[in-house]
């Protein structure tokens, strides 16, 4: 395996061939905020929080989808990038009904934590307050569209890891919704195997277990599953 060397925030760092800028940054403890990224799932580049500056290009690049290239010079935390990231978090908070105080994911929510880490104490945009529903038809879990950030982690984990493809998106723009099967109640879904993977990857309080106040999160469980499957090793 050949190794690539590049500069990140002024420091020389090494990268395995084909590694993304995000992987390189994580390896070297350089923080880059992410939301749609989830270890072990395919990348979609949707949240735009991980955008970084690459010298020689006036386009910002999504670190989660950009491969490290020999000699690249990358900046991950300029004032411009920080300002864009704050705006993106504010846009998300204003978009749906993220009422942290009464949310099951309060203090475990990745969106809330992003806001804290970026010093977002208030939202400058008009809260949209859309009227959205909840789907509580499944015996164990609830989908609350009010808290969904449309990261599509649930869609991907269900398709790529569980192989059920119960979830997908419908509608467009601000009317985009996560739906099960062909927009049937989750509890009536014929494809859902009730494995619960979607609940575990959801970054917010959009997917949660009935009767619990905090979601059951494990950022590494998909990687673990994939490795265990490959190596037939299930002890953790």
């Amino acid at each position: 395996m050949s190794v690539t060397t590049l500069t990140m925030n002024g420091t020389l760092v090494s990268a395995a061939e084909g590694a993304t800028l995000l992987a390189v940054a994580r390896e070297h403890h350089i923080p880059i905020p992410t939301l749609c990224h989830f270890e072990g799932l395919s990348e979609v580049g949707a949240c735009r929080l991980c955008l970084v500056e690459v010298e020689g290009s006036n386009r910002l690049q999504a670190a989660c989808m950009t491969k490290a290239v020999e000699g690249m010079t990358v900046t991950t935390n300029s004032e411009t990038l920080r300002s864009y990231r704050r705006q993106i978090v504010e846009l998300l908070l204003a978009e749906r009904n993220h009422v942290c105080a009464v949310c099951v994911a309060n203090h475990t929510c990745e969106l809330q934590n992003l806001a804290v880490s970026m010093g977002v104490h208030h939202v400058r945009y008009e809260p949209q307050a859309p009227q959205l529903s909840m789907d509580a038809s499944h015996p164990r879990w609830i989908l609350d569209h009010n808290r969904c950030v449309l990261c599509t982690r649930c869609v991907r984990v269900c398709d790529e890891i569980e192989g059920a493809h119960t979830w997908d998106l419908m509608g467009r723009g601000r009317h985009t919704l996560v739906i099960s099967d062909l927009h049937e109640p989750w509890g009536q879904s014929e494809s859902c195997t009730s494995c619960g993977k979607c609940v575990r990857v959801c970054p917010t309080g959009a997917l949660f277990e009935k009767g619990t106040s905090a979601t059951n999160k494990d950022p590494h469980f998909v990687t673990y599953l994939k490795m265990a499957r490959e190596q037939k090793l299930w002890n953790r």
């Binding site: 949707a46 993106i88 998300l92 008009e126 998106l169 467009r172 723009g173 985009t176």
Partner: peptide
């Protein structure tokens, strides 16, 4: 643009809504 945004990425999906507002 707000109505035609595909809804995938945040700046376009939510930014067009706010700019329109």
């Amino acid at each position: 643009c707000r109505d035609e945004s595909c809804g995938k990425c945040v700046p376009c999906r939510a930014g067009t809504v706010q700019m329109h507002g």
